[in-house]
Design a protein around this nucleic acid. Structure first.
Lengths: 148, 148
DNA sequence: CAGTATCCAGTGTGATACTG
DNA sequence: CAGTATCACACTGGATACTG
């Protein structure tokens, strides 16, 4: 979700993403690009999970986060760098031996929890309804297959 | 973002997802699976875009949505089916010639707009700050490369 | 400890062509 | 019009091994 190359300015479209489609998307749905920017952040489960962890614990070291989330070193490293770049987390490097690096939320990162909470609340309230809907849908489909 | 197979019950882990990692993730971060369920919905840009479009226009036909969003037929078809299955959109088929299918939001789908709004508001307020942070970060990085 | 580099499988998504 | 089927390809993200 993160590297939506085709959304970035000046990026050439790689084969498979035709120019027409992109232009159409931006032309017709002006808010789409902005919405996509939000989604590129909130849609990335590791970003969200890291923000939540840091919000709960305050300060965490690299390997603490890793153990906490069951994330691979690679993704943790990449995601933390992005979050730091976006001004969502602080990175503090202690040049000791062995090295020690601490991560915490910036005010911006903390403010992100609010909209996240709304989403979580909605999910809590409505996931059961969704599960029911799915069950109905799947049963419907099954009976149709039978009669066919 | 949608098919998080490894989150579904009874799904066998495909190669590349070691059992250890998954268990660790679920063991240490109890909320993760729930959070991921939300993300699997909100993290899908097409789902969100479709919900927003339908919220704005009330009722839309297949090709109206297609033109509106610049989405491919394939993705529109797949996403609409998922949304219908989740009880977020109504599908009304008119067996005329040529056929006509109308899509609209269910109450559940409408209720989803609220948390979405919170997110959008946050984005509107903070994307400039993020852009600034990125610029700072990138300039910093550039100057470090120079001195090295 | 805190990363970086490399490799590779799985998944998402667009293009294209076909159907009722 | 409203899809479905098939193909191709970029990107995600885990595993593994190496470094300071």
């Amino acid at each position: 979700m993160r590297n939506r190359k085709w959304l970035q300015e000046g990026t050439f479209l790689s084969p498979g993403y035709t120019e027409g489609t992109v232009l159409k998307a931006e032309g017709k749905c002006k808010d789409c690009s902005r919405i996509n920017e939000v989604l590129s952040r909130v849609g990335d489960r590791w970003s969200v999970l890291i923000v939540i962890s840091l919000a709960n614990y305050g300060i965490l070291r690299f390997n603490e986060l890793k153990r906490n989330l069951g994330i691979s070193q690679r993704m943790l490293s990449l995601t933390l760098r992005e979050l730091e770049r976006d001004g969502m987390v602080n990175r503090t490097y202690h040049p000791t031996i062995p090295p020690k690096v601490e991560y915490s939320l910036t005010p911006l990162g903390k403010s992100f929890r609010e909209p996240l909470k709304g989403l979580g609340q909605w999910a809590l309230n409505n996931l059961p309804a969704i599960d029911q809907a799915r069950q109905r849908y799947d049963e419907q489909e099954a009976s149709e297959r039978q009669s066919a």
